[in-house]
Write a protein that binds this DNA or RNA. Structure first.
Lengths: 189, 189
DNA sequence: GTCTATAGGGTGATAGAC
DNA sequence: GTCTATCACCCTATAGAC
């Protein structure tokens, strides 16, 4: 792996673990096995390197989500497959995490990949909910855009609750809960 | 306001804005208008001061939530009042925010107030859902604990989406979405 | 109870040799 | 392209005067 690649990968890991404020150039260099001068040769500084790292993480997250969401099945089945896929819950979401960093949200270029990722995900879920509605058990009164936002929020909030509890249990409960709400009307009534 | 009080209040503000890693004793002292020695006289250090600040924020958050949740109305009405109360959405949740801080979750004493706050909130919501179920329109198949976790996750995730978007819109959509899911069965079917 | 002085280490970044 | 040296500043904390 080339030096720039190793620097980007190290930055991705550290941003996930410690956030932007908690990640120092020195820590990046040490993890990448690169010297100070090497880092400043390939990148103009910490913001530049972070931008490359965040863009790659956002790309990867979108590709992973698309894999589950483009699978077979009804709307609820595909959403269930996405929500229940294996996740390292206590590590949290590498994109959602950055949302709490004041320097990230204050920087338009750093915030942009976060905004685009969640906008895409919400739109993708809303499309699935809308297209599958006629032949599925979903209630006719549900707004696809609102419901999609709820599903993404459950994921992101599930990570928060899990980290507070030091356990994946609240995440799993939140996912079960929203899937129960999405399917209850077909089994109840 | 006494010096210890001012130090605690300053720490609360800074923890909300910048998190634990992003908050320095120096910044706390400056905001509180207190000197270095003054801070170390009243508190043993940054962790001690942070603990006092986090405990107070957790207490306050619980009291605020209880005010909405103990109001009149059906389960859905009380939960709706809680979810839709006025919030400074882009500031995020002062407790949920700390969940992303590696040094907070690594410290049992600092994590404890977070864990207790969300455990209480989930339990409170589960109780409301369970007790009100017979005479309300909620589906019999819904698990109160799972549904409660979903509601809290929607709040916490709503903050995440709002900060990523730089707008309260996704938060409001997520709240509308979960309330739609909770009430759809009474209007549909 | 508050102050200043000081410590040892880290921060983000630049300069210039190799 | 990578290295080491150096910069000015900030970090958390302690010491001891007042």
């Amino acid at each position: 792996m080339s030096t720039p690649e190793r620097l980007i990968e190290s930055t991705r890991e550290l941003l996930w673990e410690r956030g932007y404020v908690g990640t120092s150039p020195k820590a990046i260099q040490q993890r990448a096995g690169a010297g100070q001068g090497s880092m400043y040769h390939h990148f103009s500084g910490k913001p530049d390197l972070a931008l490359a790292a965040v863009r790659r993480t956002a790309e990867e997250m979108r590709a992973t989500a698309e894999a589950q969401l483009s699978g077979p099945g009804t709307a609820v089945e595909r959403i269930s497959a996405y929500l229940r896929r294996e996740r390292d819950v206590l590590r949290g979401c590498p994109i959602g995490r950055l949302t709490q960093d004041p320097e990230v949200v204050a920087s338009p270029s750093l915030r942009q990949p976060l905004e685009e990722t969640f906008a895409w995900l919400r739109g993708r879920l809303a499309g699935i909910l809308a297209e599958d509605r006629p032949r599925d058990g979903l209630a006719a009164g549900l707004d696809p855009d609102d419901t999609a936002a709820t599903i993404v929020a459950v994921l992101q909030g599930g990570y928060v609750l899990a980290r507070a509890a030091g356990s994946a249990e609240p995440f799993d409960r939140a996912v079960n809960g929203v899937l129960g709400l999405l399917t209850a009307r077909t089994t109840a009534a």
